[in-house]
Amino acid sequence: MDARLRRVNKEIADCKNDKSSNIDIDLVDNSPFHLIGSFDGPEGTPYEGGHFEVDIVIPDSYPFQPVKMKFITKIYHPNVSSASGAICLDILKDAWSPVLTLKSTLISLQSLLCSPEPRDPQDAEVAKHYMTSKSSFEETARYWTEIYAGGPGKAGKGKASGPRDEIAMAGLDSAHVQQFQSLGFEKSKVIDVLRRMNYRGANVANINDDRVVEEMLKP
């Protein structure tokens, strides 16, 4: 039997038999080389209560070259692209070792959710948000968990049951957004510019309002 196939089959079987780790690996189609891994957001983090899915592609030279993983579930985290789900983690690159497994790699991803590394970011805007105001960042990450990963959130209070709150999605203050909207700019434009400029927390004092307006006037 093909060595790669034997190894992957064993890994999938081991993972199925191991109930304690709470890591799941499922086949996407009939190929064992394209999988979906999933795990729960760690307790005590903004991802708690969410369930996260990861796309797994086993390259031809596995396990001698690293497995390819990216988040399917949208997640607000400095080391994960908020747009594509691409992950910045050393063991998925040059720190990979053939003794690492799909399960151990997924556990590493889970641990990454506990301790972001904003100094080595995948998503620079999210990383800036994290560095500026951790509490505001966590609020946004929690909101994303609620919207995309089935987290508990404030749904009970009726807030998220309506349309998605774009301001909360961008981690902004609704008072700030309204302030610029009142100058006649469109809401989506205001959100986009303020998000890019990291108009949050203590950083607000560093940004001249004229610069914000200038930015909004750009086509």
Partner: peptide
């Protein structure tokens, strides 16, 4: 699963 890489090693919950 092993303690892996700087990140996880320092960060495992």
């Amino acid at each position: 699963p092993r303690r892996s890489s700087r990140r996880v090693a320092s960060a495992a919950t």
